[in-house]
Nucleic acid binder design. Structure first.
Lengths: 146, 146
DNA sequence: ATATTTGCAAAGGATTTGCACACAC
DNA sequence: GTGTGTGCAAATCCTTTGCAAATAT
């Protein structure tokens, strides 16, 4: 939905990076799935278009796209390292703990809190990271009245 | 500071778990360092007292202590899986991005936000996870006026 | 006494790296 | 044409597991 090939190509070229089929394909895959994906899952999906890609390329690409702010790393409670398309701006994620659905939300009610904390701790706050976990509408159904 | 051997032993016994030198040592190490530590680093520290411990024991112990709520997993922006002593109650962490110092804070200004999000997304929110990043007082000095 | 926990070594996964070839520019 | 990016395979790193011996209760 947010995906705009032209914008992406622009972003890559701005930094002197090349615009390859693999990079566009990884981004497209992430953009088309509402769930977060592991590198392995991204590989499988990308291979439907580009059968010869390797896992190493997927990792290299995911890192690059994360640096560009185009994909977001999602950390689950247990393991880590799954990926999802990132929309622009300051956003956080709501993640379904059953099916993995990722919903982003933009509100950030933390500014007041960070100021208080900064004053008390004498930290210079650089950023924060917030994820909410829960059951999405469809997954609530399967669990009766939770 | 928070560390109370008697309390820990009680917690272990309550669950039918045994109170071993390794478990106490891991907890003590985490409690004595204000930084977060990797499993490897915990191993080195514990070996000063118990030279024969193995990494597997460290992993098993860290997981067990995390389940008991005595240690908290810290996830950094890049990699993951570092550990630090956890105080009780609902707390979040402020982490120095330069030296790794971990400061916990208890305020949770998120309740209002979670309600709004829950209503709009139809998610049943189960929990959240918040970490703040910044430079601690000492590390700010080294970087002139940030 | 006995069930849990440990240490060791081996297995398992995920991620990274080296290098020749392919491709975007 | 030239330098970046890719595919492949091997290497590396982190974490888990199986099992006999050690140990807390």
């Amino acid at each position: 939905m947010e995906y705009d090939e032209g914008r992406v190509m622009g972003l890559l070229r701005q930094r002197g990076l090349r615009c390859t089929a693999q990079r566009l394909a990884v981004l497209k895959v992430l953009d088309e799935t509402p769930h977060h994906l592991s590198a392995q899952e991204v590989l499988s999906a990308v291979r439907q278009d580009l059968p010869r890609v390797g896992l190493a390329t997927i990792y290299r690409t995911l890192e690059l796209l994360a640096d560009l702010g185009l994909v977001a790393r999602v950390h689950l409670v247990d393991g880590c390292h799954r990926y999802t398309a990132a929309s622009s701006g300051h956003r956080h994620q709501l993640i379904c703990s059953r099916c993995g659905l990722v919903v982003e939300f933009g509100e950030c009610a933390l500014s007041g809190l960070t100021e208080t904390i900064a004053r008390r701790t004498e930290f210079a706050i650089e950023g924060h990271w917030l994820q909410l976990y829960g059951r999405c509408r469809d997954c609530r159904r399967g669990v009766a009245l939770a």
